[in-house]
């Protein structure tokens, strides 16, 4: 029996884990040593958020499932993450643009969630808020330099922005169980954050001398477990060790 609070907390955890894992894939192949460490730092922040969220979800569920059970022993269709988070990293511009678009949403999201009536979620949000502030700064500073940089960096930034834009609408979707939680003061109304997200994104794009893509048809499905073909292969890699050696520890 899945309660709304369990399902909601699990989706937040999935968002953090999937994007964190994607960023971790840059390790050993980032463009510079400095970016290698920056992307790994951000990945670790996100995986850290996922860990406390999974632990709390397991506690809420009350069936004794641990953070590892939830991260490594659920299949693709059980993941409720945003589709944008599971897309392959692409080039550095794609990774930077995604991180800017997602962080520009997650910062006001965590800020709002610090006011949650659920004390655990509020505490998790307070920690995540500081981390995501930095993720946004890092990605925005890069995007300004890529957009307003060389011909190549500009071309790649425009391509990434156009490709990613249709995946941004899902951030503002409210599943029914989440809407009920928001009305109870536990979750946050995502749609209400759209204006602030738009302002943040516009400010970055203006400084980066990039045009904001036009809103059109938006991708959807992640919250219902309907994913792109990329999540399955990502999970296969991510979960293989835990499934081959259940209970393995350092």
């Amino acid at each position: 029996m899945s309660t709304p609070l369990f399902a909601y907390t699990l989706r937040l955890a999935d968002d953090a884990l999937v994007l964190g894992h994607r960023l971790s894939e840059w390790t050993s192949r980032a463009p510079t040593l400095e970016e290698e460490m920056a992307l790994a730092n951000i990945a670790l922040d996100l995986i850290g958020q996922a860990r406390v969220l999974y632990s709390y979800a397991g506690e809420v569920e009350g069936r004794g499932r641990s953070e590892d059970d939830l991260a490594y022993f659920r299949d693709e269709a059980a993941f409720g993450n945003l589709l944008v988070n599971e897309l392959p990293n692409g080039d550095f511009a794609f990774t930077v643009v995604r991180q800017a678009l997602v962080s520009a949403f997650m910062l006001p999201y965590w800020t709002a969630l610090t006011g949650s009536r659920d004390a655990t979620l509020a505490a998790i949000a307070a920690k995540a808020e500081k981390e995501v502030s930095y993720h946004l700064r890092h990605a925005a500073e890069w995007l300004v330099r890529l957009g307003d940089g060389t011909d190549e960096s500009r071309r790649r930034s425009i391509a990434a922005l156009e490709e990613l834009w249709p995946w941004t609408g899902e951030m503002f979707e409210m599943p029914d169980d989440e809407r009920a939680l928001a009305e109870a003061g536990i979750a946050v109304d995502r749609a209400a954050l759209k204006a602030e997200w738009s302002r943040t994104v516009d400010t970055i794009l203006e400084e980066a001398t990039l045009d904001r893509p036009r809103d059109g048809w938006m991708q959807t499905g992640g919250r219902r477990g309907v994913h792109t073909e990329h999540l399955g292969t990502m999970l296969a890699v991510m979960q293989s060790l835990a499934r081959a050696h259940p209970g393995a520890t350092w």
């Binding site: 510079t32 040593l33 400095e34 970016e35 460490m37 920056a38 930095y134 890092h138 500073e141 330099r145």
Partner: peptide
């Protein structure tokens, strides 16, 4: 560290 400008140098220094 290597960085294109002062702001990015601060960011890279923080991360490294």
């Amino acid at each position: 560290i290597h960085a294109p400008d002062a702001e990015m140098a601060l960011i890279a220094a923080r991360d490294v």
